[in-house]
């Protein structure tokens, strides 16, 4: 290839890659920025750009939106409880699966990861039918039942990943020095897999907090979760309070993400 063709090749290649990457990055960032900008409006409707800036909708969200605050608290409780239960079950399962590549272990792992591909709407409908079968009414417990299944895959996945990196000779060393299995777990295994557990718990929490499909089938009238409340607001009235609530959620996400990256290096487990 002569020099000009070579230059043209390189130039066109990088132009296309950079343009598309810029468009991709714009797509990733734009929505959150737009929501935050809109939430700072001084007007009454969702216009972009906003006519003026003010924090009025955040004040309104904080002081006179009992429906949104109640839903926020319900979602927090639900996500925390579901994550806690799923963490205990998931970490135990991940250690039980261990490094084994046996067919039964692979089958079990596929079972534990299945909620990632099953539409949660179908799962929600199924659990609803199960509760109806036993004439158990819907309550916080039915919500929790579904959300634990939703959270578990993330914890199994990240905990398995960090457990696989643990050097098995350490476990042999601990055992041969006379440590009990529980002592080995507490002093050798746990400190090493803790970043994996924390990362999985974090991702599980965020997913539970965000889930609409399961909650739609499994919540009773009294326990409405935040994403469903916001969904209804956006569908019915396009209230600016929804933008303010979104602004709060984005801020919480950014802060918790930076914190988890520091504490547990979460991004490693997402690749």
């Amino acid at each position: 290839m002569d020099k000009t063709r070579r230059r043209l090749d390189r130039w066109s290649y990088w132009t296309v890659i950079l343009l598309l990457a810029a468009l991709g990055l714009l797509m990733l960032a734009l929505p959150s920025l737009i929501v935050v900008a809109t939430s700072l409006t001084s007007g009454y409707s969702l216009r972009f750009p906003p006519p003026g800036l003010s924090l009025r909708w955040y004040r309104s969200l904080l002081f006179d939106s009992p429906d949104i605050t109640a839903a926020f608290v319900t979602s927090l409780k639900l996500a925390a409880a579901a994550t806690a239960i799923a963490t205990v079950l998931g970490v135990a399962a991940a250690i039980g699966l261990g490094r084994r590549g046996a067919p039964w272990a692979r089958l079990l792992e596929a079972l534990f990861l299945s909620p990632l591909t099953i539409p949660s709407l179908a799962l929600g409908l199924g659990i609803l039918v199960l509760f109806n079968l036993f004439s158990a009414g819907l309550s916080f417990a039915s919500l929790l039942t579904g959300h634990v299944a939703l959270c578990a895959p993330y914890i199994v996945f990240t905990t398995s990943a960090s457990y696989a990196q643990l050097d098995p000779t350490w476990l042999d060393a601990s055992r041969s020095l006379g440590a009990s299995p529980f002592f080995t777990f507490r002093r050798v295994v746990l400190p090493n897999i803790l970043p994996g557990i924390l990362s999985g718990a974090f991702i599980a929490f965020m997913n539970s907090f965000d889930n609409v499909a399961l909650s739609l089938f499994l919540s009773d009238g009294r326990s409405e979760v935040l994403p469903i409340r916001l969904w209804h607001i956006i569908e019915d009235s396009l209230d600016v309070r929804a933008a303010a609530a979104s602004g709060v959620l984005i801020a919480i996400t950014v802060l918790s993400m930076l914190l988890m990256e520091r504490v547990a290096g979460t991004s490693r487990f997402l690749r």
Binding site: L28, A29, L30, P31, S32, I34, V35, T38, S45, L46, R47, F48, P49, I203, M206, F209, D210, V212, P227, L230, W231, I234, L238, A242, A243, S246, L249, I250, T253, V254, S256, M257, T266, S267, L270
Partner: peptide, 24 residues
Amino acid sequence: LLPLLTSTVVRTFAWVVILGNHGL
């Protein structure tokens, strides 16, 4: 990662604002 962890309802809502009649 930020969008991945941000609520889907929030990100969908953003598109309602961007594409609406008085949107961006």
